[in-house]
Amino acid sequence: MKTFNERRHEFKPYGFTCELWTPGLMKRPDRHNEIEINYFPEDSITYFFQERKVTIPTKRLTVFWGLVPHQIVHYESASPYFVCTIPFAQFLEWKLPSLFVDRILKGEVLIETSDEYSVYDEFLFNNWIGDINKNNQADVTLLEIQARLARMAGRNLREKKKEFSLVHANEISPVEQIAVYIAQNYNHPIKVSEIGEAVGLHPDYANALFKKAFGSTLSEYVTEERISHAQRKLVTTGASITEIAFDCGFNSISRFNAAFRKINHCTPREFRKRNR
């Protein structure tokens, strides 16, 4: 089982995961650019989200954007809980209802108010852990998580009432706006000047602000998002490497191969063979 590593670099991506975690008091907040899904089958856990303590109840699916600082400050027992992390760009590709997505991007933590689906959720999480870590069926797991979140969002729209508990909401910062813009546009040719213009900042200032937060320049981050998308395509589809390269926003196969090798220390073909 996993526990929070306090030495991990802030903003370091978790990627696509579904795991059992053991709770522990966190000496500092965690931040990562993935959508995080929590499920506590036995005991509640209290997080500190920026300026507010929030107790997540048992047997309630909980969803929030990992870019919002979050820190466990209290837990009832060491009972394990489920954690899934979904790459941000993947989450946006699912085209879930805009109200649901917008609330998450504005920093809300969405908690289902009913435990009606608790038995179903626990069954799903156990299956997802096995499918990702033992059965090499990440593509199936992604489809099921997408469907589960779509149901969660759909009930809210159909019933026209507040299905989720609002825990925390605030306008997203310029750095978060940049991350959203890149996640929505990385597969197109984009320039640093366009990113700055999109969020109302001078390109040099946007680049400096982003590098201070994420430890990489805007250009480097765009490349990382493209390669992350390519990794998912290589593992979950049968598309050709050339097709994947252009689909991810690269304008030449040579640039794609060079960028992929620099990040993964192997070729796309080797990566596909190793992970399939």
Rank of each mutant, 00 (worst) to 15 (best):
A78G: 13
K53T: 08
I56P: 01
E116W: 07
F100L: 00
W94H: 03
I132R: 10
T141H: 03
E42P: 07
S44W: 02
T113Y: 12
N126L: 13
N33G: 06
W94A: 03
L149I: 01
H32W: 01
E51D: 15
F48S: 10
K134Y: 14
D139Y: 10
R151T: 12
F125N: 00
M152A: 01
R28C: 08
S118F: 04
E76K: 04
D131N: 11
K95R: 10
L61Y: 02
H32Q: 15
Q71Y: 04
T85A: 13
N33H: 13
V101C: 02
T141V: 14
L92S: 04
H32K: 09
E108T: 08
P57Q: 05
H74K: 13
S118D: 06
G130I: 09
L105W: 04
D102S: 09
Q90S: 12
T62F: 09
Q71G: 01
F123H: 11
F88H: 05
I86M: 05
F125S: 01
I145L: 08
V140S: 11
V101S: 01
R31H: 10
A150M: 09
I104S: 01
I86Y: 03
I132C: 09
E108I: 02
R155Q: 01
D43I: 04
I129R: 08
R60M: 08
F64S: 06
F82N: 03
V140L: 15
T113F: 14
K53F: 13
A153N: 02
F100H: 00
F40I: 00
Q137M: 15
F40Y: 10
L142I: 14
V73D: 04
P87W: 06
T55M: 09
P87R: 02
F64A: 07
E112A: 03
Y117T: 11
E108P: 07
Y47W: 14
W128C: 01
A89Q: 15
F123Q: 15
G130P: 05
N38Y: 14
E42T: 11
V109L: 15
L25E: 05
N126R: 13
F49P: 04
N136W: 13
N38G: 11
H32V: 12
Y117G: 06
D131I: 10
A150S: 11
N136S: 13
F100A: 00
F64G: 05
L99E: 05
F49T: 05
L157A: 04
H70A: 07
Q137H: 12
N136D: 13
S44M: 11
Y39W: 10
Y120P: 06
L110C: 04
L110E: 05
L142Q: 12
E34Q: 10
I37P: 03
V54L: 00
F49M: 10
K59N: 14
G154N: 02
D121C: 10
G24W: 06
F82C: 04
E112N: 06
I56G: 00
E93D: 13
R103L: 10
G154E: 00
K95V: 07
V54H: 00
T62W: 11
F123K: 15
W65L: 12
T46W: 13
R148M: 08
R103W: 08
E122T: 08
T46S: 11
F40L: 07
D121K: 07
L67W: 15
M152K: 04
A147Q: 09
N136T: 10
P87T: 07
H70V: 08
D131L: 14
